[in-house]
Design a protein around this nucleic acid. Structure first.
Length: 283
DNA sequence: CTTATGACCTGATAGC
DNA sequence: TGCTATCAGGTCATAA
């Protein structure tokens, strides 16, 4: 997502921005830490979002990522932090074209060359946080997150799991422990590491944590190379679906045959999410 | 402090 | 056809 967004927007000046749904944006002095604080009732009047805060009149210099979150950094040093949630997406259209899916579009950036970039999110679990600069992004938003899953080291994962009594599956979904693993890749990584999802996080040996850490990085590397997993909605900023769903070993395959041992995959709710594993391959 | 639970939203699908 | 129930990639506030 980061790479496709970078290809789509870097260097193109933003002529104007239209905010169609105020609740998807949180500003810098909204209460910290919250994910959906702009939509929880705040005392006082609803404050307008200045267009500059949404990068109007600026040019996007780079697109960063930490875990599941994106950040658009402008040439003025301002930052837009975006979390796509489950159904959020970016749409691009060329000059004169209309947006491919105009429903549930919450923000539209008009680019200087006549093209447009839009933030669309039917389920509205996603959101946008305006930051005055990168220091603000790090202190208010990304400082809360654990190490990025794509590059995490075994010692850092071990530190996050030590003394954890909940299941390893639940721990992997906690973005303060490791940032960037969701329900799909938690199950896929645990299968690859041959570790049962219901094991308490703190019960993993140092060797098991090292194996799991390598599995997480390998799964994400392969999934990113395949363009991600498109279950239904996911498209990158250039409209392309991913292909990694074809290669899921366990996610979405409960009751079916394990691709390694042909045994039947188990399925249960662990850490409040549907979890699938192989009772024979995983220990 | 850590962990568990219900809530937030819409749309697709299954079953009656 | 139309109704209801269930489920989905995530994270929050609140409670225990």
């Amino acid at each position: 997502m980061r790479r496709s967004l970078e290809r789509a927007v870097v260097g193109r000046p933003i002529a104007d921005v239209r905010l169609l749904r105020r609740e998807v944006v949180a500003m810098q002095d909204d209460p910290p830490g919250g994910f959906s604080r702009a939509r929880t009732e705040q005392p006082g009047p609803i404050r307008r979002v200045p267009k500059q805060d949404l990068l109007a009149g600026q040019r996007i210099e780079r697109v960063c990522r930490h875990g599941k979150q994106l950040a658009l950094v402008s040439d003025a040093g301002r930052v837009l932090n975006v979390h796509l949630g489950m159904t959020g997406q970016f749409l691009c259209s060329g000059a004169g074209q209309r947006l491919a899916q105009p429903d549930h579009v919450h923000v539209v950036w008009r680019l200087g060359d006549g093209g447009r970039l839009a933030f669309r999110d039917p389920r509205r679990f996603g959101g946008i946080w305006t930051c005055r600069d990168e220091a603000d992004l790090l202190s208010r938003r990304w400082g809360i997150l654990g190490p990025d899953a794509a590059t995490i080291r075994a010692s850092d994962l071990a530190a996050g799991l030590r003394a954890s009594r909940r299941s390893i599956k639940a721990a992997l979904l906690d973005q303060r422990v490791i940032a960037g693993v969701g329900n799909i890749y938690a199950d896929e990584a645990l299968f690859r590491a041959r570790i049962l999802p219901q094991r308490p996080g703190g019960s993993l040996t140092g060797a098991e944590v090292a194996v799991l850490c390598r599995a997480i990085r390998a799964i994400l590397r392969d999934a990113i190379e395949a363009g991600g997993s498109t279950l239904r909605d996911y498209r990158d900023a250039e409209g392309r679906a991913g292909g990694y769903q074809e290669r899921h070993s366990v996610y979405g395959r409960g009751g079916q045959a394990c691709r390694v041992c042909s045994g039947m995959l188990g399925s249960a709710v662990i850490g409040q999410r549907t979890t699938v594993w192989c009772p024979a391959c995983q220990l």
